[in-house]
Amino acid sequence: MILRALVAAGGLLAAPALADTAWVTNQSSGDVSVVDLEGKTVTATIPVAGQPAGVAAAPDGRHVYIVSPDTRTITEIDTDKRAVSRTLTLDDGGPTGIAVAPDGGRLYVTDWYEARVFVIDRAALKLIDEIEVGTSPSGIAVTPDGKRLVTADRDDDQVSIIDLATGTRRIVKTGERPFGVTIDAAGERAYTADVGTDTVTVINLESGTVIGQIPTGERPYAVALAQGKGFATDQYAETITVFDIETFEVIETLDSGEYPEGIATTADGKRIVFANWFSNSIWVIDAATFELIAEIEVGDGPRAFGQFLTAD
């Protein structure tokens, strides 16, 4: 459990080979493809309410949480049973992105319509609080120490950094229309994919300042971190922009399927996995050699927006 929590954001711990599972939200077919990344096969397809986009695996790996904005549903999947265990339907709003607190106690869900974050008690699966953020919050992430919550406030061109102990909010301007946001394993930086300016913005969370900006292909969606590099999915360009996280230089531009979207790093930090929304596939790429390891067909319209991988 500790290992999972530490490596969840793409850390570089030495770890034994792990069997990773991808939980891919298919927005058009309204289900979740469960993908065995070692066997390179879909082992289950789980129907869920609505048209799911956001996804977050709990750090303990017992549950994966799925968000459907149209039906306002949070769906809990039991990872052992590979079945829906509980659901929560919100009264209003448009839940979009989701993150689970590192201690596993709470779920944080952005509301695309009402500039807020829903705070949900995981044990009760009940809405307990709301946090004000900027307009059209989409991507969301929590630092590994559980102290800070970061949202990409898309239509305000900013991130909100919430101190979860005090509730205070700081705002940092990014490129235009940040969508995905990723926090590094050290909890020091956030990386936003800025749809409007075709950039990744790198933010120091302690100082609340922008420390770098990287040009990407057209319409970046989200960022994963692995092997000292960042990987941004460029939806329109059909590429992955790879950049060095120290120099912020672009190292390589990789081909992807059509409309690459959600992206995450495997628990061993060696591979990245992303969904191709139009192609209905996920691709697995070696983060060091950039070799395409696997191409796996999933359901219709995969978005995988969030931390969609678990490791056994």
Partner: peptide, 10 residues
Amino acid sequence: AEAHGPTRQK
């Protein structure tokens, strides 16, 4: 101009 709904269609 830039706002959009929750589900992209194809």
